[in-house]
């Protein structure tokens, strides 16, 4: 098992390095001059040259890359072209906000998917099971931002029960925090929940067909009890994989949801940095996002081995 985890870790490190080169390279070819954007419409050629030098973007690309990645290793993401302040602390701050959002979205998705998926599986030959299945199909088809716009219209603008946007940290006012988090988390989680429901359902149906479950039923357990005692661990293997993939989707989905709900997370920071051609900041954020996704995949791989003994023996 250790060998396999080490191998996974190596793959993680190599992918991360390749990703850093790709992120840097792609942004280097983006049209638009950061110095020009920072100085605005009336910049003179002299000021432009001076600012380019100040930003260090007049040097060879390779030099720029190594200096950047070297700094990243020690936690220094450089200074923003726009705010001229260190990017690292801001990244941590914004990532914290986004993690609340993604975490809450995941929670909503699980709260929907687990009961709904199991229910739909156990009753998959009956009408009630088909209704759940159909609803989840509908949920898959609705993009997160559409759900967000509808939720805002209904609960914020019409009913005025919840704020249309904004962010209150939990320490400042826990109640405001929760009411502000509810709509964004629902927008993110409803769609993911619908997707997950389908996986839970099919995974549980597979388990239900296994011999050991029939034996459990024969011992006199109800379908739900049999599933709970003997089936869930087996059913969870494919679900954990999808969960990992969905965490990545949620991170990306949060970019749009943060804009709709005016939440100062990593996503809105990314969009602002892109439109300001604050390339160093964009680079830092994209790298963090990529690392997060790679890390999630790594953890999923490891969990796999832990959950499923057969995979351990295979190595």
């Amino acid at each position: 098992m250790t060998v396999q985890i080490l191998r996974r870790a190596l793959i993680f490190v190599v992918s991360a390095l390749v990703a850093s080169v790709a992120v840097f390279g792609l942004l280097a070819v983006l049209p638009g001059d950061p110095a020009q954007v920072a100085l605005g419409v009336s910049a003179t050629p002299e000021l432009l040259a001076k600012t380019r030098q100040e930003f260090g973007i007049d040097r060879p690309l390779a030099t720029q890359y190594f200096e950047w990645i070297g700094g990243v290793f020690s936690g220094d993401f450089g200074n923003s072209y726009v705010t001229r302040e260190p990017i690292g602390p801001q990244l941590v701050d914004r990532l914290g906000v986004t993690m609340w959002l993604v975490g809450a979205g995941m929670l909503v998705a699980l709260l929907i998917a687990l009961p709904a998926g199991v229910f739909a599986a156990v009753r998959h030959r009956r009408a009630s099971g088909s209704v759940i299945s159909g609803l989840s199909q509908l949920g898959v088809a609705v993009p997160g931002f559409v759900a967000a716009i509808i939720l805002v219209q209904v609960f914020a603008v019409q009913l005025r029960w919840l704020p249309a946007g904004g962010w209150t940290p939990p320490i400042v006012d826990p109640l405001d925090f929760l009411s502000g988090l509810l709509l964004p988390a629902l927008s993110l989680g409803l769609v993911q929940g619908a997707v997950l429901t389908r996986y839970v359902r099919s995974s549980v149906i597979d388990v239900l067909r296994e011999d050991y479950l029939r034996t459990a039923r024969a011992k006199g357990l109800t379908p739900y009890r049999a599933l709970l005692r003997h089936g869930l661990r087996n059913a969870s293997v494919p679900v954990v994989t999808v969960l990992g993939l969905q965490l990545a989707t949620l991170l990306i989905g949060a970019v749009v949801i943060e804009r709709v709900f005016v939440i100062p997370g990593l996503g809105s920071m990314l969009l602002d940095a892109v439109s300001n051609r604050d390339l160093l900041t964009v680079q830092g954020i994209v790298l963090v996002l990529v690392l997060a996704v790679l890390l999630v995949n790594f953890v999923v791989d490891v969990l796999y081995t832990v959950l499923n003994p057969r995979l351990r023996q295979a190595s």
Binding site: G96, W100, G180, V262
Partner: peptide
């Protein structure tokens, strides 16, 4: 690390309602 991040999320100020 997670705890540090969550606290970081807390330090951004309150903006939700008038």
């Amino acid at each position: 690390f997670l705890a540090a991040l969550l606290v970081a999320g807390c330090s951004a100020g309150s903006t939700a309602s008038a």
